[in-house]
Design a protein around this nucleic acid. Structure first.
Lengths: 111, 111
DNA sequence: AAGATGTTCACCCAGATGGGTGAATATTGC
DNA sequence: GCAATATTCACCCATCTGGGTGAACATCTT
């Protein structure tokens, strides 16, 4: 499942910041890096992780690498979260129904 | 930010499965473990990670540890995802507006 | 051709992770 | 008191991670 990569990529605050930065539009590696207190090399590695997760794409133009963010893995993540929450709600609803049914357990014995 | 722990905890498929399993209601460590091909010890460690993220809580009853899932970190995650997507949409809207404005650049020169 | 710029590659390092095993601890039940 | 059960603790191991540095490579500019 690609959720693995999406979640682990977004689990790092630096990568979340890079991703949100790229939501603002195309940027070079250097442009992204200058906002962070870590080395250019480290930022480059973070970008590679985001690429592996499909959250960022790269377009090489000469010596510059132009990066763009891709929202689709985020959509997939949102779908998983909502699905999990929905499943949960249904379980809670079932529990409530069960408790309600147990509230008057004589309904079967007193027709 | 607690998102760090939530995301990295959910980045592992075994832990997502444990979490979803616990959405079905309270269960013991052994109950959870028997559904997975890994050792009880490893499951215990996964549970500790989920606890650190606040996704799971533990209630000790005698020699049994009863586990329950907590949906609140998931709500927090959903909020972050939606916020990021909303920010993105606003950026895209702004971009579309910009492109639309550039579609008729003579509007200022031809009153 | 030579230098400056943008980016990655190949390492090093400390620490976390995910898996395992075997022993320790706590509780229940006989 | 003693055996079985439920769980964790203390390790071992290979791998990944996030940071660093210095060198290499590719490209632009002069």
């Amino acid at each position: 499942m690609s959720l693995d990569h999406t979640l682990s990529a977004l689990a790092d605050p630096t990568r979340r910041a890079i991703f949100q930065r790229l939501s603002g539009g195309e940027a070079r590696v250097t442009d992204v890096a200058e906002r962070f207190p870590i080395s250019l090399n480290s930022v480059s590695k973070h970008i590679r992780v985001l690429e592996r997760a499909g959250l960022v794409h790269r377009r090489v133009a000469g010596r510059e690498h132009l990066l763009t963010a891709d929202r689709r893995p985020l959509d997939e993540l949102a779908a998983w979260v909502e699905q999990t929450r929905a499943f949960w709600s249904s379980r809670l609803d079932a529990l409530e129904a069960l408790l309600a049914a147990e509230d008057d357990p004589e309904c079967k014995e007193q027709p």
